[in-house]
Design a protein around this nucleic acid. Structure first.
Lengths: 206, 206
DNA sequence: CTCCATACTAAGCGGTTGCTTAGAGCTAAG
DNA sequence: CTTAGCTCTAAGCAACCGCTTAGTATGGAG
């Protein structure tokens, strides 16, 4: 899962590779960085333009508003993590849940800049945009719940409260975006592996 | 741990009971509500004054700035949760960790309004104020780590990575403030009990 | 070459922000 | 009654906000 960022593309470039034209992508990446470090409301459109190396008015050539910038980030971010979670493979429920948690928690570490905006700026979206994103979040929850439910059906998990356990697992992974620092000792992959172990301990039979 | 809020005092009043004079307390409570629902930067001093039923200028009679309002909230909130975590009782490490997680997670649900400000608006503090709060956060982490370490020494816990496990347990509890809704099915006490069970599963021997 | 669409900037508009100033109303000591 | 001190409000200031307008530079089609 980990990409090194040493191949000429930064991690942010990789996530937003499909965004065109070039100036629109640079603007989006600038917005992600600014929103992640200062928060949506503390970021001005002048901050974003300045980070992208353009004039304040240039924002509005590619985006209708500051909120639309946030919506694009939020939408692509949620779609990316949903795709990631949907593509988990493994033989047996134990291995699949392990891989799912490692990938999902690892993503929140590796792409913590994007993840921070995705997870902590939902409240700044317009009601219509928020509802679109909420639907994706429901699908993410459904996926994670299915991985746990599989193990219960297989008889390899002991989970008294499926909804509660799903909530806790997702919560654990999501919160990585809040505390993760690249300067810390653990790599995203190590965090993913550690969290996978902790979650499997939570669901294993007594 | 749960207080009903039916005794004439709201939960917010209870937390801020010691703040005087009365107008300063009403202003703080208004700020907590506003910061929690819209975020620090999206809240105007006029919002706060209006919620407190006073004029915009009244804020500055009791507080030097909007940031000082946030600092007071953050400081009292951190002190409260540290005191809570420090006063845990129980015979044996298993019972103490169970009680600690139940209390800490339960607090983040019951006082989710305060907890949201405490946990998610740290970045808006001035560097000096942030450092003061960071010291309290280090003490909170130390306390939780001690509860887990006790169980390892007693031989009743199997934890390969003490620092990692502490981080995960705190993270799990803190994130309750993000997703908790009073309209949800679980009471704060039920969430505390469920989380205590999940955490004990994470640290029990194989 | 002309023409036109696209991508950008310089300048700035109306509204809002955190915070200040000047002064009014109230209370209580002398 | 006077007066000092505290709490509050009405009004407003300078700075900054999101966003718009007018105009410039560029490059490709005819």
């Amino acid at each position: 899962m980990t990409t090194t960022g040493l191949d000429g593309f930064s991690l942010l470039d990789e996530t937003w590779r499909t965004v065109t034209p070039d100036a629109a992508r640079r603007m989006l990446i600038a917005a992600v960085q600014a929103f992640a470090s200062k928060g949506y409301h503390a970021t001005t459109t002048r901050d974003i333009a300045s980070l992208a190396g353009m004039s304040p008015a240039a924002v509005y050539i590619h985006y209708r508003s500051k909120e639309e910038l946030l919506f694009n980030i939020s939408l692509v971010g949620h779609e990316t993590s949903l795709t990631l979670l949907s593509g988990i493979e493994g033989t047996g429920a134990v291995e699949r849940l392990k891989n799912a948690v490692a990938a999902f928690a690892g993503w929140h570490a590796e792409f913590h800049t994007t993840a921070r905006v995705v997870q902590y700026e939902l409240g700044a979206l317009s009601p219509e945009h928020h509802e679109q994103v909420a639907e994706l979040r429901r699908q993410i929850e459904q996926r994670m719940r299915a991985y746990i439910a599989d193990g219960i059906e297989e008889g390899v998990f002991d989970v008294p409260d499926l909804k509660g356990a799903t909530l806790a697992v997702l919560s654990l992974c999501i919160d990585v975006a809040r505390w993760y620092q690249p300067s810390g000792k653990r790599t995203p992959d190590e965090i993913g592996a550690m969290y996978a172990d902790l979650v499997l301990r939570m669901v294993r039979p007594t």
